[in-house]
Write a protein that binds this DNA or RNA. Structure first.
Lengths: 353, 353
DNA sequence: CTCTGGCACTCTTGCACGCCGAGTGCTAAG
DNA sequence: CTTAGCACTCGGCGTGCAAGAGTGCCAGAG
């Protein structure tokens, strides 16, 4: 009640959680005494367990089965009891090394982060690519694929690229195309949807700029593509580690597996969390039903933002049963997000997008 | 024995398979008579079932449980018994329509094909992107990202693109970069690894061509990237429909699920099949352990090549329990592969790569 | 030679019962 | 506040038993 918890009870609480995380079995008073050589008897421990249950930190499935932590219990553990040791130096080195290997291929980061996270935390991982708050191209390129087919390539300001083919009536040489692309690049140097639309409007009112058919078609398409991108790309979630999670005993029931696959694949449940994390700092932990989503009552999510300044950012994290190793998961997520942020800074420099 | 099977026995065999596919339960003589109003008694059917078992088409888990088809039984069904009706017109239209929607975004085809296939066949789907037998770029582009960072974009001859950032000592303007790219494009117009290496060698022997540092660096990188691509890209397999497969009763056991996830994710088991299909025509069906892979003894795979002529091609298909609806799966795979091939032809024209 | 009804036999599935063991909760004493 | 002791509660497991579903086979009819 009065929240003042004796040292021993704190210890016992901590041990219960550790024990449960390790064994996934309800933990009994006797076991605690034996395994950790407590200087008190099991009866005493039982009293303490009862007290902790009173506080709402533990439960009981039926009389005569050990105690199991509640969401509140995990929360208390994470806030007050947990050791906050960072990853071991060798683990840090391995991870950093792997990222260093692919430092120049931005599109492989996502995958790598997902794989490393899943493996280290033994749970499913969740990674979003850099979410640009506003899609903007840095460069537009036109490439002749075939007589009447042209490939439009948009290089976005965060370094990712998008492609789209378009059919044209006319036959254009590669030189024509390059010239048109250059003209567009020059005129739409900012590359936001707004900017492009502005240029188009201007063109319509005073046609002196004299875009040709192709160029107008390209611009139209670019606008649409950028819009789509903002939408679709900003909602994409990559995930890995399904196989890891299948090894967890809570997933011996296929129904659970099905639900998890839906969560990971569909993403409707994850997206609100992710957008929340995008505008926050540090590692965020959501335990069980804390945020009210019923589908996720049995799972916990550990997320962190990565990115530079406030413009370009994404989210990495882990999802698993509430019975997960929070210390380990949190350190891993924290470390990976800082590594990714560091690398990004190196690539794009501090000050600018 | 003498392979001459009476009309009734053929019918019964067919019914057993249909029934088993539908219910996933061993099928009993009595049930067959009742459900299909056979004009013979269950005893007669029992005799026929025994005969079919003798031929190796059916089995028996224990005395007194219905019959279950063997791999050979499914094979016989697929070769001789199955109705080969194509997809319904409305289904065809829906599918074609969806592809038409994204016809200009080649990179979305894979995903779409996977989704449609999984949904229509109610099983996991497997799709590879276009596998180029030799990676070759059509166009190379250099884009300034940041002072010392340059993005290299390779547009491959099949229309897909690859990106890679590189760090340079010098600071180059976008104009410099474009000029260099143009020079490289001109010199390496074929764009195969061989071609680029040839150019580099030539350059080394008679340095009159005078590539600058940047250009040499880019070429080096391009060679490596192309090599990697051929390797990595040619091994990538996209899959979808895990969720569909989880609804199949054979996957109520999590061990099975785990194995399936490994097959879909790892791909070592699928790759030999895929390369085989790449050099064949029509829909290929592999039932259970037919190809000797132990891990896949319980699953069947229905694959087809898609692509134009013999140069550019990929594979689409379905994997599921041997108890799958072969007629439906086969028609779907066949139809989707032809749609994709048609669209490809439209994009790239008939005669050339 | 083919089909059929009848019947014995086999094997799975579900259910009820009872026991054991693991844990708790409580009480009374140190 | 701690501890020992003990009653009490459940879940899990093995056993036994009955019901039900199918087959296999035989003997007789067409």
């Amino acid at each position: 009640m009065s929240a003042e918890l004796s040292e021993r009870r704190r210890l016992i609480m901590k041990l219960v959680i550790q024990e449960f995380i390790e064994t996934s079995q309800p933990v009994a008073s006797e076991t605690l005494v034996r395994k950790h050589r407590l200087r008190v008897s099991s009866a005493t421990v039982r009293n303490d367990l009862a007290a902790l249950e009173e506080l709402g930190y533990l439960t009981h499935w039926h009389t005569s089965a050990g105690r199991v932590p509640t969401d509140a219990g995990y929360r208390f553990f994470v806030e007050n009891l947990m050791d906050r040791t960072p990853l071991s130096v060798t683990e840090q080195r391995t991870i950093r090394h792997q990222f260093y290997q692919v430092r120049s291929e931005l599109d492989q980061w996502i995958q790598l982060a997902g794989a490393v996270l899943a493996r280290t935390a033994q749970n499913a991982s969740v990674v979003t690519p850099l979410r640009s708050y506003q899609a903007r191209f840095k460069h537009l390129e036109l490439i002749s694929i075939q007589d009447s087919t042209v490939l439009m390539v948009l290089v976005l300001h965060d370094g990712t690229i998008r492609q789209q083919t378009l059919n044209v009536e006319h036959v254009w040489t590669q030189e024509d195309l390059s010239r048109s692309a250059a003209r567009i690049n020059e005129r739409c140097h900012d590359g936001t949807v707004d900017r492009v639309e502005e240029v188009l409007a201007q063109e319509r009112s005073e046609p002196t700029l004299a875009f040709n058919d192709l160029e107008r078609q390209v611009l139209d398409l670019a606008v649409r593509a950028l819009g789509q991108l903002e939408e679709q790309f900003n909602n994409s979630i990559y995930s890995d580690g399904l196989i890891e999670i299948l090894n967890q005993p809570e997933f011996s029931d296929v129904d659970r597996v099905r639900k998890m696959v839906q969560i990971l694949h569909g993403g409707q449940d994850l997206n609100p969390l992710i957008t929340r994390v995008l505008s926050s700092n540090g590692v965020q932990v959501v335990i069980g039903g804390e945020h009210g989503r019923d589908e996720m009552r049995e799972y916990s999510v550990v997320l962190s933002r990565y990115g530079i300044n406030n413009e370009v950012g994404g989210v990495v994290g882990v999802i698993g049963p509430t019975r997960m190793s929070y210390p380990r998961t949190i350190s891993t997520v924290r470390y990976i997000s800082t590594v990714m942020s560091d690398l990004l800074s190196n690539l794009y420099g501090e000050g600018r997008p």
